[in-house]
Each structure stands twice: as structure tokens, then as C-alpha cells.
Write a protein that binds this DNA or RNA. Structure first.
Lengths: 149, 149
DNA sequence: CTTGAACCTATAGTGACTATAGGTGCCATC
DNA sequence: GATGGCACCTATAGTCACTATAGGTTCAAG
């Protein structure tokens, strides 16, 4: 119960990470250096496994490592006064929601395309319009309506 | 109507892209080379603007450029028989849905944290458990339940 | 006609890995 | 207890998708 021990390859398999990447995370500092065997092999704990799984998921979702570091600091110190943690959480929340919205727009268009494909042709593909749409971009105003990708 | 013309800086401003990145996209081939002025300055059309906006959104959503290229080919040839386009669309659809699901889990947890922050402390932060959760990972079975970062 | 912001090319640097080379440890099997 | 071979080690170089810098040219506003 106290001591699940993993080799680097176990961690790699369980999280779908390359062994090299795990070692790189250690050099980077985002993963703590584990204990070593006499021969120098790394020996990981359950905590390492959890942390690595978290990092990988966050990266897959597109958070830069720097943000992941921040989220980890947040998780590391649950007794910290709220101001900063709240700010971090809020910023990420907004980013997450924006991503969800745009992914849902893309999802809808892909569904439409796959459905249209049932009829033998790609039909007019609007994937580009869906994502090129300025509604989520910074500036812009007019909305011209053209198709020509 | 036929001829909106943009300098590279206009495209950059309108899409939130760095000028260097646009030139890089051209060298890369994902953006077609525009007409030049006598002095060598690039002159873009509305089509360029749309395509760039699409590329940027797709990249923000985490698609590698190679996938973006594929989606663009899909959009470029709407008369193409369906098999390949359908396959591409389906694969991306699955990827998109998986992303949405995980982002929503993260969103829920961030909401919970921000709410808890109202009471002065970060409370138990479960951001890590939420994302470290193996439910979306490749292999794995047991689910131990520990918290340790 | 000047001035300076915006453009040009070319090259080097960054973040986050990924691959390769060359060597060592571990342990199951003989 | 020797040994075969796979997993591990370090170090370095390469990749992708940019981003920054240096050093020079163009163009449009005044």
C-alpha cells in the first residue's frame, strides 16, 4: 500500500509517454527526480505516475508547460491564500471555455460533412468558414461572406 | 468587390499572427505565395486572409500543421469522391470530441475551485485528479484513489 | 524629397519534445 | 555463478512550428 514502485518504462507505458520525454521533464524540473537504484536506474512512486498523467493530459489539451507548472503549484499548495490561485484558475477557465466553443463549432461542421458524405460527394465544405470565422478572433468587424478559402 | 488587397501587416493584425509566421507559412507551402509589388512587397487577397484565419484557428485548437494541410485539401476539392475526405473528417471528429470531453471535465473542476475560493482557501484542489484520471488514457485498469499531488 | 514605419532576406534561437549513439545494469535462465 | 539480452543510462543532435535578430530596402505621409 505504501510502496508501488515503477521503472521509467512502466511510467511510459501507463501514461503513453516516451521514456525520453519523462527524462526530459526531469531535467526541465517539472517532474521531481526520483530515487535511483545502486546502478542508477530511476525508481518512481505512485505520486510520480499521477503527476506525469496530469502533465500529459494538460499538454494534450494544449496548455504550455509553463501553465501546467502553474496548475501544479496550485495543486501543490491547497492551503495557499486564494487570490493568486483564483486568478490562475479564472484565466484558465476562460481559455478552456473558448477552446470548447471553437471545438464544438468544428465538431458540428465535421458532423455535417460526414453526413453529406453519405450522398457520394463532399458537398460544399465549410470547415474553413467555420473556423476562419472572425467571431472568435481579436479585431474585425465587417464579415464579407465569400467562400474562396 | 473583386479586389481587397492586404499588406502582410494587415493580415497579421486581422488574424493575430506574427508577420514572420506568415512568411514562414509561405516558405512551408501551406500559404500560397502572393503577388508582389515592383519593390517586392507581398500583396494578399481576401482568400489569403480566410485561409490564414483558418490555419490559425486550427493550430490554436491543437491540430498539427500536417492535419491542417489535410483539412485544407479537403476544402480545396469539394468535388472529390468521398472516401478519403470522410475518413479524414471522421478521424478528426473523434479527436475533437475527445478534446471537448476532457476540456469540459477540466472546466467543471476549475469552476469548482473558483467557487471554493470564495471562502478564502483553495480547498482540496482536484485539478490533477480530474486530468490525471486514466479514464481517457490508453491502458490501465485499477484506479487507486490516492491524492498525493 | 525626405523620413521613418513597414517591408524584405537570411540566420539563429526557443519550446517541447524525439531520435540516435554508445555504453551499463538487471534478472531470468542455463 | 556465468551469460544473454532487454531495459536502462548519459549525451548530443534533430524536428516542428514558430519567434527573434540583424542588416538592408520600399513606400507613403508630410
Amino acid at each position: 500500500m505504501s510502496g508501488a514502485a515503477y521503472a521509467i518504462g512502466d511510467l511510459a507505458r501507463q501514461t503513453g509517454t516516451k521514456v525520453e520525454t519523462i527524462r526530459w521533464y526531469e531535467r526541465d524540473g517539472i517532474m521531481p527526480a526520483p530515487v535511483r537504484t545502486a546502478g542508477g536506474h530511476r525508481v518512481y512512486t505512485q505520486a510520480h505516475l499521477d503527476r506525469l498523467a496530469f502533465i500529459r493530459h494538460a499538454r494534450e489539451l494544449g496548455f504550455p508547460l509553463e501553465d501546467v507548472r502553474e496548475l501544479l503549484r496550485l495543486a501543490d499548495k491547497p492551503e495557499r491564500p486564494c487570490a493568486e490561485a483564483d486568478a490562475i484558475a479564472r484565466v484558465h477557465l476562460e481559455a478552456v471555455r473558448s477552446r470548447i466553443a471553437r471545438l464544438q463549432a468544428l465538431e458540428a461542421e465535421l458532423v455535417r460533412m460526414v453526413a453529406a458524405c453519405g450522398h457520394g460527394r463532399v458537398a460544399e465544405c465549410r470547415v474553413i468558414e467555420v473556423l476562419a470565422d472572425q467571431s472568435h478572433a481579436h479585431c474585425l468587424h465587417d464579415g464579407h461572406g465569400g467562400t474562396g478559402l
